[in-house]
């Protein structure tokens, strides 16, 4: 179900790196409390869009609005404090700090911060590893830490970049459970993921990218049946 009030809205986004056009006229919105799935072949520009939404990249053209205010020029730390949190596709833990400190630096200290940190670690299944140095974690736990750290910032919009890759069925089920808990708190979610059947368990809407453009946007079932989407994926696999 699509929500009418949008919380995060990117309009007319273009992104070039030198001569390379990575995004071209992209419009992308997220409603309050809505979960949007993003799919598309590698190199389609999904991560680039997420960087633009999170503020770590200033787009060549277009605007980003959060809760109706223009945030295009705000840096990522400001946007985070406003309520936009993100994970990194390749995890970027604070390697010299413990797992607990990784989330604590996002929640802030004091009783409220400690409680939130513990809660977030429990939710993402990391509490047993709380005192482990983050650079000693395996990939799965690093991905969980990405999620935990983003949640620790108490976001209104959560931007997820391929946090479910390479999981077993049981691990994927745990992840879906975690995301559903977050969703239950009315946090809007943008989730880039290749594993469509996992994505389908949580999303309200699906957007498909190909070569820097949105080629489909709507009801998840409709979008995965779309001829252009199937073609983009098959085409992507063949090359």
């Amino acid at each position: 179900m699509q929500t009418s009030t949008s919380i995060l809205e990117a309009a007319g986004i273009g992104q070039r790196f030198g001569a390379l056009v990575v995004l071209d006229g992209v419009n992308f919105t997220v409603g309050a409390g809505e979960a949007v799935g993003v799919v598309g072949p590698n190199g389609a520009g999904k991560t680039t869009l997420l960087n633009i939404l999170a503020g770590s990249l200033r787009p060549t053209s277009g605007t980003v609005q959060f809760l109706g205010a223009d945030v295009t020029k705000l840096r990522s730390d400001r946007r985070c404090r406003l309520g936009i949190a993100r994970t990194f596709q390749v995890p970027r833990p604070f390697g010299g700090m413990t797992v607990f400190e990784n989330v604590l630096v996002a929640t802030g200290r004091g009783r409220a911060g400690y409680e939130r940190s513990v809660e977030v670690l429990e939710l993402s299944g990391l509490v047993e590893l709380a005192n482990r140095r983050a650079d000693n974690l395996g990939l799965m736990h690093r991905k969980r830490l990405e999620l935990a750290r983003a949640l620790a910032t108490d976001p209104q919009v959560l931007l997820l970049d391929e946090i479910g890759g390479g999981l077993t069925d049981a691990e994927a089920a745990e992840l879906v459970h975690t995301i559903k808990v977050v969703q239950g708190r009315n946090v809007a979610i943008v989730w880039i993921e290749h594993i469509v059947h996992v994505l389908m368990q949580v999303i309200d809407r699906l957007v498909c990218f190909d070569a820097g453009r949105v080629i489909a946007d709507g009801e998840p079932e409709t979008v995965i049946g779309d001829a252009a989407v199937i073609d983009a994926y098959l085409g992507g696999n063949r090359s």
């Binding site: 730390d77 985070c80 990194f88 604070f94 390697g95 996002a106 620790a152």
Partner: peptide
Amino acid sequence: ASLQAIRDDEEAAAAVGIRV
């Protein structure tokens, strides 16, 4: 704690709201 996060990864530190 913020400084240590910046030391380890500046961009990730900004992404959790730290005033780098």
